[in-house]
């Protein structure tokens, strides 16, 4: 049996979890094994309807009176107990901070291997998983074999397309009550402090206006802010710009920052280093504004404007303002 960890918001599965399910279903089909899901939190039982579209046969909802707040070790132990009871040999999870750390804990607990960042999976004749996974944020791909009594995998972000199953299921929904010792709650969210930031989070924005070293100063981001606002988007930055102190690290797009997946990424004064490009490769389209027609970003863009962003962006803002 393939057990897929699913994160959700009040019974609606998260997009990355549907990507993780797409990977799990690939394995389920290849092995002829049933696909089951495990979910935590309020209203997990409402997941049944939607997960049926993706071929899930059973949804296991974990219920425990101490699990009101997230506790990674308790989540991992719940998954381990369920996997043992259901004889799940394969456990998958989406490419989120939470799921990755839970699966790492499952791997430590079961002493089992975990392949993170998977972008393709298949099953070899000998039963081993043949997979491809991202390295270097995706600038390299590793071909690997995953073997063992338990196989754990997390999906890379935005690699597995979300497609309904050929034959939808009507999942049964069951409640699981794991036996959880006190020490599994040593690490637990104590409280959540709401952010003071306004606007759309980078990871969710349909339009991202990125600024790099070419912006030149913190003040010059005002024009990028205006462009982002006119397009209903948000501003990102390269590591170079963050290191200059022009933008907070939260705005950083790249391997050690945010991974974005907007409809369009407008990269202004960004050279296009590998470490930056792996953060924005999820963008559907890329428009570069750069003085250097030889810059790497121009080679990688769909459209490019060769010119100084300090001249192009204000003019663009004015045109967009007039149009609205």
């Amino acid at each position: 049996m393939i057990l897929a960890l699913v994160e959700h918001d009040g019974g609606t599965p998260e997009e990355l979890s549907l990507e993780g399910l797409a990977m799990a279903r690939k394995l389920s089909t290849a092995e002829g094994q049933p696909l089951e899901a495990v979910a935590f939190g309020d209203e997990a039982d409402a997941l049944g309807d939607e997960l049926g579209e993706y071929g899930v046969e059973t949804v296991h909802c974990v219920a425990h009176d101490r699990l009101e707040r997230y506790a990674p070790d308790a989540w991992a132990e719940s998954v381990v107990q369920l996997a043992s009871r259901r004889e799940a040999e394969t456990i998958t999870a989406p490419g989120t901070d939470r799921s990755r750390e839970v699966l790492a804990r499952v791997g430590a607990s079961l002493d089992a291997p975990l392949a993170t960042n998977c972008l393709a999976v298949d099953v070899a004749d000998d039963g081993a998983y043949e997979l491809r996974r991202n390295r270097w944020g995706g600038s390299l791909i590793e071909h690997a074999r995953l073997t063992g009594e338990h196989k754990l995998l997390t999906a890379a972000e935005h690699e597995f397309p979300i497609e309904p199953a050929a034959s939808p299921t009507e999942p049964s929904v069951s409640t699981v009550e794991p036996d959880l010792e006190d020490d599994l709650f040593t690490v637990q969210v104590d409280r959540v402090e709401s952010g003071d930031e306004e606007g759309i989070p980078l990871g969710e924005a349909r339009v991202v206006v990125g600024g790099g070293r070419g912006v030149g100063s913190a003040e010059d981001y005002d024009q990028l802010e205006e462009l982002a606002e006119l397009l209903g988007g948000t501003v990102g930055a390269s590591r170079a710009a963050v290191n200059e102190g022009w933008r907070p690290h939260d705005d950083q797009v790249g391997q050690t920052g945010a991974k974005i997946s907007p409809d369009v990424y407008i990269a202004c004064g960004i050279s296009g280093a590998v470490q930056h490009m792996v953060g924005c490769k999820g963008a559907d389209t890329l428009l570069a504004i750069n003085t250097d027609s030889e810059a790497a970003i121009v080679q990688k863009a769909d459209w490019a404007v060769i010119g100084d962003l300090h001249e192009v962006v204000p003019e663009l803002n004015e045109t967009l303002r007039d149009a609205t």
Partner: peptide
């Protein structure tokens, strides 16, 4: 990449 133009003259194409 499709070059939309040089400098501000590219703005109509960007829009």
């Amino acid at each position: 990449a499709e070059i939309l133009g040089e400098g501000p003259e590219a703005v109509p194409r960007i829009v």
